Amino acid sequence: MREIVFDTETTGLSPKDGHRLVEIGCVELVNRVETGNSYHAWFNPERDMPIEAEAVHGLSAAFLSDKPLFSHSVDEFLAFIGDSPLIAHNAMFDFGFINAELELCGRPLILVDRIVDTLALARGRHPGAKHTLDALCTRYGIDRSHRIKHGALLDAQLLAQVYVELTGGRQIGLMLRTEETTAAGTVAEPIRLRNAPVTMRVPRPHAASAEELARHAAFISGLNDPLWHALAPVVDP
């Protein structure tokens, strides 16, 4: 199954206030394993960059001034995500900005049923704990020492590892059965391990030889007051 984990950076908190998308990073997973395929782009927001936002991600208006508009890169972005499920942390924030940009381009919006929110997954799995990306990386032992500021691609890469842990960890790939889908769309009876043919092999000889037993006896006889003599059971006459 193909899934896309992604993150965004923006000029502010809401597109309703005129804020724009400035960066997006996507990481491809197939069967919850990173394939190495990714998508990353910066965008010119055609507006100023509030100092509060720049302090978070380090992207200045000057840096973004020569970057393409989202409308110029939208086809490449849509081709990468395809129709795969989309995973993000606090997903409605990111999807709000992406759909706002798609609307400005006159493109169809992304449907909510494609959304997987890792924040909701974390709250369900670890109620009462901290659920920030940093906190989840710490919980699962994911190295984030190179995360100085927020960056869309780096955060997507970290989130991909967190998502795998939230959904069962790496052991999800160690299945001892396979499933087939019938023409009717139902899952057929799994092929169980006990039904698999077993090939017996001739056991290897493992008994000590007479020479080895003699060397062992000679070694034991040379021990001075071995411990097991003190622990030997007392037999009544």
Score class of each variant (00 low, 15 high):
M1S: 13
I4F: 06
T8K: 01
E9I: 01
E9F: 03
D17N: 12
D17P: 00
R20M: 04
V22Q: 02
I24N: 00
E28P: 02
V30R: 13
R32D: 14
E34A: 14
G36K: 05
N37S: 14
N37C: 07
S38W: 01
H40A: 05
H40K: 01
P45G: 05
P45E: 02
P50N: 06
P50Y: 08
A53T: 02
E54I: 04
E54C: 02
E54N: 07
S60G: 07
F63V: 06
F63K: 14
L64A: 03
F70N: 06
V74Q: 12
E76R: 13
A79M: 08
A79I: 02
G82M: 07
D83N: 14
L86A: 09
H89W: 05
A91T: 11
A91I: 10
A91F: 03
M92Q: 14
A100C: 05
A100H: 08
E101F: 01
L102K: 09
L102C: 05
R107A: 09
R107Q: 13
L111G: 15
L111D: 15
D113N: 15
D113C: 04
R114C: 01
A120H: 10
A120N: 06
L121N: 04
R125Q: 13
P127G: 00
A129L: 00
K130H: 11
H131K: 02
A135Y: 04
R139H: 14
G141D: 01
R144L: 02
R144V: 02
R144P: 00
H146W: 02
I148K: 03
I148D: 09
H150E: 09
H150L: 03
A152S: 14
L153K: 03
L153I: 03
A156C: 00
L158V: 08
L159A: 00
A160M: 00
Q161T: 08
Q161S: 12
E165Y: 07
L166S: 12
T167K: 08
T167I: 03
R170D: 15
R170W: 09
I172T: 14
L174F: 14
M175E: 15
L176R: 15
T178S: 12
E179W: 04
E179M: 04
E180V: 13
E180Y: 11
T181S: 11
T181M: 13
A183S: 09
G185Y: 03
V187S: 10
V187W: 06
A188C: 10
E189Q: 11
A196D: 10
P197Q: 11
V198F: 09
R201D: 05
V202W: 05
P203I: 04
P205A: 12
A210P: 09
A210S: 15
E211Y: 04
E212H: 06
A214T: 11
A217N: 05
F219D: 11
S221Q: 13
S221E: 12
N224R: 08
D225T: 07
L227K: 10
A230M: 11
L231F: 13
A232N: 10
A232P: 01
V234T: 12
V234S: 11
